[in-house]
Simulated scan of single mutants.
Amino acid sequence: MCAVISKTRTALTALGLVISGTAAQSEVTCTERSFDGLAYTACEVDPRTDVLRLFLDAPSGEKFGQFSSIDNTLQDENKVLAFAMNAGMYHDDRAPVGLYIEDGQEIMRVIPNAGPGNFGLLPNGVFCIRENRADVIETLTYAATPPECRHATQSGPMLVIDGDLHPRFLADSTSRYVRNGVGTSEDGSRVVFVISDQAVTFHEFGRIFRDDLGLPQALFFDGSVSRLHVPQLGRSDFGRWMGPIVGVVEPLDR
């Protein structure tokens, strides 16, 4: 087990934050895996059966910001957060940088043009959750013919586009960060969220989606704030406050 996960679990246990009970029955499949000698945690979700959605604003009007805040709200509805991950870049006030749709309501419009930072490193993309499927869609393709997304978040850059790595990724890059993102299958039935458990390059991170997981489309979420909530692994990262969060909701008593 890598040091990052071990330290996280130790801290959570000390604070009494590890969630138990329903985690063992979760239908989300999360595994710690190695690819090219690098450590990752991958969580596979089936959008045909799992309740996959985005979270931003709490009932109070404030941003959720932490996994525990979402879980506390869900428990009032006899539900639990079975899996979660930060899902896209955000401004200082934690508002989404690009497109954000929640429960069918567009809160922020799509940004189609290039810009500074990783978000503007085109091609970037949109993660779209819709009826019985979820897809990573390149931004200009999305903008040309927007599908009916119940939930959607824009981020960038794309990691894998139609089976190819982003053209700006360099195999010999020395820029390494803990990174997280999502990949989807062609038919939208398979969704895999991945976080690196050590610092990796964009090229290395893109390759786990394409060459290890076999996913033709993948999108980068972040490399400054990369966080994961997986009760079944005894893991719930905490630290800096987050903006958009993606998660799977299950009945509390499953």
Rank of each mutant, 00 (worst) to 15 (best):
S34V: 04
L81I: 05
T31C: 01
Y100C: 05
S60D: 07
K63F: 02
L52C: 01
Y100N: 14
H91N: 11
Y90D: 04
I107R: 14
Q75S: 13
D71G: 07
Y40D: 06
A58Y: 09
L74S: 04
E27N: 08
F35Q: 03
L38H: 14
I5R: 08
N72E: 12
T49M: 00
Q75P: 02
K63P: 06
M1E: 10
A3N: 14
S60R: 03
R9S: 02
T8P: 00
Q66E: 15
Q66I: 03
E27Y: 00
T73N: 03
K79L: 12
Q105E: 13
L99E: 03
D57E: 11
L81T: 06
T73P: 00
A95R: 12
Y40G: 03
G16F: 06
D36T: 14
L15E: 05
A42Y: 07
M108D: 10
R53E: 12
A11D: 13
I107S: 11
P112N: 07
L99T: 02
C2R: 06
A14Q: 12
C43K: 02
R53Q: 13
I101R: 15
S68Q: 14
T73Q: 07
S69L: 05
D71C: 02
Y100Q: 05
G37R: 09
A84W: 10
T49F: 01
A39E: 10
E106I: 12
M1C: 02
D57M: 04
G98R: 06
L15I: 04
D57I: 06
Y40I: 00
A23Y: 01
D103H: 13
I111A: 12
T22N: 06
C43T: 06
G88N: 11
C2W: 02
V51R: 15
I70R: 00
H91C: 04
C2D: 13
C2Q: 04
G61S: 04
C2K: 06
D71I: 08
M108W: 08
V28K: 00
A39F: 08
I70C: 03
E77F: 13
E77D: 14
S6P: 01
I19E: 15
S26C: 08
G104I: 12
A23M: 02
I111E: 15
T29P: 01
N86Y: 13
Q75H: 11
A58R: 14
G61K: 01
M1P: 05
F64H: 11
K63I: 11
D92S: 14
N78S: 12
A24R: 12
T22V: 05
Y90E: 08
K7N: 14
Y40P: 03
